[in-house]
Design a protein around this nucleic acid. Structure first.
Lengths: 347, 347
DNA sequence: CTTCGTGTAGAAAACGTTAACTATGCTGCC
DNA sequence: GGCAGCATAGTTAACGTTTTCTACACGAAG
């Protein structure tokens, strides 16, 4: 910048003012400065500006993986809103490791991010919650803001913005839909990690729908596993060997459901004639699966956008730092009434 | 940091040294400092450190969209390698706007990113190439590095790291495969934007394979469109109304191919019995399409990792700043010999 | 007993920018 | 003509680190 100032025959302050445009500068001076900026191909140093200006104009988002379509869509929302608000985006992945997640938040605190958006579900043990609350307070102290996007609040005292969706309600709705079709033996694939907010909320909805129909969930129909396709495939294989009498399967995720579908196809079962399948998330490619998948829609992008919007304008939205967005079932071709409902009901 | 120093009864210099660990500090002093850091919940200011230390330890990657699975996988590679090298990742999207892409590079120059990775194909007009070369030089001047990931080099004089894959070769191979099966009327969907590197390379491979069989491409079988599913769907609809006699379709992208499949299904055509379909990219969900898609595999993640590795260690890999990774055809169920090959050959 | 080296600590300058303050030359008014 | 007020530009300090240089004490060697 000194070089530019010298080339234009002015002081550094004037250059700064021309670039920022927040102070009157005469037209001729402005022209000379701009000319020098061009000639020297000068760009401002964002670090130095942040150091004195107070804000880095940076939003961080921390996500399980870049490749999971759900995360990608939420991430897209975060990025778009951040860009729209003139911010730059930092991104990190933790691959499902809760401790790594905390480390990353710390790293983002060093980076002085204006907001740190945690995308997707997370661990919910008392210790982890306590550490998270502490981190939320640490962030607040440096003027940053913790944002939970797709995850329930940490606690009443922790300063955090929360934008979640009705996870449990969606699971209730899709399970209820299957039950209404006449299914009584519904498997749930992907129930491991009971301390994970997404897992527990979805399983709770599954259970509550059964209860609403006066039924209890058969533990033999509950399979564990992780959030990937491979897991859905393997767990379904295992279920099939056990002769559970299931007529429908709910995958905890569309990705998991695609593994479920693969295993069922391999076993020669027709979908939905022989067995119904439902997923969760409504990722775009669900419509292209074979058959197109019945699932629960989440307002992915809106989730990400709101997260950033609320966090950056938290003075304007002061009393509104907890948003719950709705979910709804999307019925496609992978679900139908069971073929011999009465015969199986009493199983 | 001054607070920590005061709390520990030492100077700021000493605190810095304890944290950096690059200077001998007595055990007792270290303990006191660490204690104060804990008590005050201190984190270093990355901006200030970057300002004096010279490096921001930041890698930027600029991508069309976060949600395209191809980009996501390459991005994943970038992020992983950057993290492995102790860097932090900045991400931006340009949604296919080439000018916006240039703006973003400029923005990343302000951010003093150590490397700026451009993911995916791009525009290739003379003017754009010239501006790009200029930007590459600008980046070099501030110690940063332009990295082209999945795009051919700008020119011999532009300082850039290039990690590309054999785009044209893959298109040749998959087209050649269809021709070998006996197809003679092969449509190409997604050929708009002829100045786009990805489009032109893939179309060139398509053309060259025809030439190798002594054939020329019928312009009536070449459909335009963009890189999304909707475009594949619409273009295929249009092709179907024109009675082209096509027995196979190559989608410029797996995403486009999924739209092609949808349109063909809707028209009541069986795949591959009535018509074959191939895609490009081998995104993971291609295996779950109906039917599983024959496509061209790209080493997505390796592409991203190499890009970062080469850029950050360009003194070690000085003479090796242009890498070309291989592609290969993945044969699945969406392709088969044409049902009445001889009848259509002479079309 | 001086001198030297070594281990540890601090002071001061520097990084590139902005903000608060100060200075200069005009214009216009009494 | 003197002076208030305004438009424009410059000076200086500050942001939070690291780095370079300097300082001090202590033990060992001559």
């Amino acid at each position: 910048m000194k070089d530019v100032a010298a080339a234009a025959g002015v002081s550094a302050t004037t250059v700064s003012r021309v670039l920022a445009g927040n102070y009157p500068v005469s037209a001729s001076t402005r022209k000379r400065v701009l000319r020098a900026v061009q000639d020297l191909d000068f760009v401002i140093n964002a670090q130095a500006r942040a150091l004195v200006g107070g804000s880095t104009r940076t939003v961080a988002f921390i996500v399980r993986d870049l490749v999971g379509p759900l995360f990608a869509y939420i991430g897209q929302g975060v990025e778009q809103q951040a860009t729209a608000e003139g911010r730059v985006c930092l991104v990190c992945t933790h691959h499902g490791d809760a401790d790594r997640e905390l480390e990353l938040i710390e790293l983002m605190r060093e980076q002085q991010a204006e907001a740190v958006v945690l995308v997707g579900g997370g661990l919910r043990t008392p210790e982890h919650l306590e550490r998270m609350a502490q981190i939320a307070r640490s962030l607040e102290r440096v003027g940053s803001r913790l944002v939970l996007c797709g995850r329930p609040p940490i606690g009443p005292d922790a300063p955090a913005t929360v934008v979640e969706y009705d996870n449990e309600g969606g699971a209730f709705a899709v399970t209820n839909y299957l039950l209404s079709l006449g299914h009584r033996r519904i498997a749930f694939v992907g129930a491991a990690e009971p301390d994970h907010t997404t897992t527990s909320a979805r399983f709770d909805g599954f259970t509550r729908a059964h209860a609403a129909h006066g039924l209890t969930v058969d533990p033999g129909l509950v399979a564990g596993g992780t959030f990937d396709r491979e897991s859905g495939y393997r767990q379904t294989k295992a279920l099939l060997t056990r002769d559970t009498g299931m007529t429908a399967v709910v995958g905890i995720t569309d990705i998991v459901a695609s593994g479920v579908l693969a295993a069922l196809h391999e076993a020669g079962l027709r979908i939905p004639e022989d067995i119904s399948v439902a997923g969760y998330d409504d990722i775009p490619q669900s419509a292209d699966l074979n058959p197109p998948l019945t699932t629960v829609h989440i307002p992915h992008e809106e989730l990400g956008r709101s997260a950033v919007r609320l966090a950056l304008h938290r003075d304007d939205y002061a009393q509104d730092q907890h948003l719950m967005l709705g979910t709804h079932v999307v019925i496609r071709k992978s679900t139908a009434p069971p073929s011999v409902p009465s015969a199986l009901t009493g199983h």
